[in-house]
């Protein structure tokens, strides 16, 4: 007599939940990964708060103020102390946009290279799960913590700047454009970074090499941020909308490329 086969393809939400929980457990057990995940937001947060606090107690020199007015026309005309705080508060907001490019990249890279190294991919692929669903679940497992960490860091920064900073600083961090950027662009940037990390991980076996290649994703963000702070580019509502559309297109394109690379046969036969 043959016993009944119990298996079926799992429902997508069940699969996503199972993969996320497993990946998070695995990540929490990896002290290096936890450290690398938390270090950038903590450093940016502490530095941002310290810089705003320092600007509140140390009045800038006339020369610094003139240079600031020239570099950042948005704060021209404000009281020097206010202007410096507003400038610093905005500058650190740009650094917050770096968190979703750095933090999930490491997680995503570990998620694929870790499985390659421990040879856990073959049993995983032997299940009735679709590889597209698996890739989606893996993307989400790296995206969710990164978005939460970025939002939490921003929340703390927001509250601290409002309580210790000047009116200009408070206005800078609560500008609807920036709130929208944090709410909308952070998840999009995170997804881009995650799928880029997965894509790179399909080709290399060394976490450090993958991080170095993936790290290039920060360059356009930094460039854009510097251009915005120095007044070379004005990020108005139209620009934010364009950036959002570009990021959505990039996200879809990179996910599609990652999906192409993430095929059962490729993984088992060609990945080394």
């Amino acid at each position: 007599m043959t016993a009944a086969v119990l298996a079926v393809s799992p429902a997508r939400p069940t699969l996503v939940r199972a993969v996320c929980v497993r990946e998070w457990r695995e990540a929490l057990g990896n002290k290096l990964l936890v450290g690398m995940t938390l270090l950038p937001p903590v450093v940016i947060l502490v530095a941002g708060i310290a810089a705003v606090a320092a600007a509140a107690v140390n009045p800038p020199s006339d020369r610094d103020v003139q240079a600031l007015y020239a570099a950042a026309p948005a704060v021209a005309g404000l009281d020097p102390k206010e202007a410096v705080q507003g400038f610093i508060a905005t500058y650190f907001l740009i650094l917050f946009m770096l968190i979703p490019t750095v933090v999930p990249l490491t997680m995503a890279i570990y998620s694929v290279i870790g499985e390659k190294a421990s040879r856990t991919l073959e049993p995983l692929l032997a299940t009735p799960v679709g590889v597209g669903d698996l890739l989606f679940a893996k993307s989400l497992a790296s995206t969710v913590p990164s978005v939460i960490v970025t939002w939490a860091a921003y929340g703390i920064y927001l509250a601290t700047v409002i309580s210790i900073g000047s009116r200009a600083a408070a206005q800078a961090v609560t500008a609807p454009r920036w709130i929208l950027a944090i709410v909308v662009l952070v998840p999009l940037l995170t997804l881009l970074s995650v799928n880029l990390g997965i894509l790179i991980s399909t080709r290399v076996n060394d976490v450090r090499v993958a991080q170095q290649i993936g790290g290039l994703v920060v360059v356009p963000v930094v460039g854009l941020g510097i251009a915005q702070v120095t007044g070379r580019v004005v990020l108005d509502n139209g620009a934010f909308l364009e950036m959002t559309i570009v990021l959505i297109v990039l996200d879809l394109a990179v996910f599609w490329l990652a999906r192409l690379a993430f095929q059962r046969e490729n993984i088992l036969v060609r990945w080394r």
């Binding site: 497993r22 457990r25 695995e26 057990g29 990896n30 421990s118 040879r119 856990t120 991919l121 073959e122 049993p123 995983l124 032997a126």
Partner: peptide
């Protein structure tokens, strides 16, 4: 059963 056990060793 694959050649390597391929288990999640931290779990």
């Amino acid at each position: 059963l694959t050649e390597q056990p391929g288990l999640y060793e931290r779990q």
